[in-house]
């Protein structure tokens, strides 16, 4: 499903380049549950952004379902964001002007899902995350952990084929983290959703079936 060939990402430093990722070759098949690990600043988020089509690699080729991403037009990418990819940001990134409910509903709006179905789906995830009481609050009225939950809810509500989650449980209590991990596992096993998460926790990594380590711009399995 996902194929990276000699992917590099670098930033200019002085007169040279500082490689964050160097010649990464990586294949992830449909239905896998992958955990990416590595020290801070090693490029985990960068890799995830590239996978999520939010950032362009400096070099190399990225094939999503066999199609070259760099050849895709804006429309096709939008299509993928609507249907195939759910992204959980490390920094939550909720829309400040929208309530919890509306934030979660937004991806469904872009997918043109009818109102009644939207309602039941949002209600469903709100229920699953125990957030029903908070549905009319705005992001700045939530704690960091609660915002993170909304971010995850927003990523899964559209039933994407791939979930890309950047430290989804970084701000959560270990019990809550466990619930999220079990949810991911469930989505992965029951619904065959591919999951790629960045995590610092070895425990979280055990929920997946594959671990990728990033160090010095290279990956090790």
């Amino acid at each position: 499903m996902i194929q990276l060939q000699k992917i590099s990402r670098h930033y200019p430093v002085g007169f040279g380049k500082n490689y964050i990722l160097k010649d990464i070759d990586l294949t992830i098949n449909e239905g896998e549950f992958v955990s990416i690990m590595g020290p801070s600043g090693s490029g985990k988020s960068t890799l995830l952004h590239i996978l999520g089509l939010l950032e362009e690699p400096s070099e190399g080729q990225y094939l999503f379902e066999g199609e070259r991403v760099d050849k895709m037009n804006e429309k096709k990418r939008t299509q993928l964001h609507r249907g195939s990819i759910g992204f959980v940001f490390q920094a939550y990134h909720l829309i400040d002007e929208l309530t919890v409910y509306e934030n979660i509903e937004t991806p469904l709006l872009y997918k043109n899902i009818p109102a009644s179905e939207r309602k039941s789906r949002v209600a469903d995830v709100l229920d699953r995350f125990n957030m029903v009481a908070k549905k009319d609050l705005f992001p700045n009225q939530l704690s960091g952990g609660q915002q993170q939950l909304v971010g995850i809810a927003r990523a899964i509500v559209g039933e994407p084929r791939v979930i890309l989650a950047d430290e989804p449980t970084g701000n959560l209590h270990s019990d809550q983290a466990k619930v999220i991990m079990q949810l991911f596992k469930h989505l992965n096993e029951q619904d065959k959703i591919t999951i790629i998460q960045v995590t610092h926790s070895d425990l979280n990594a055990t929920y997946g079936n594959r671990v990728i380590q990033i160090r010095d711009g290279h990956i090790h399995e």
Binding site: T78, H81, H93, I95, T106, P107, Y110
Partner: peptide, 8 residues
């Protein structure tokens, strides 16, 4: 954010 959620 909206672009990542599928807004054109």
């Amino acid at each position: 954010i909206r672009k990542s959620l599928g807004s054109s």
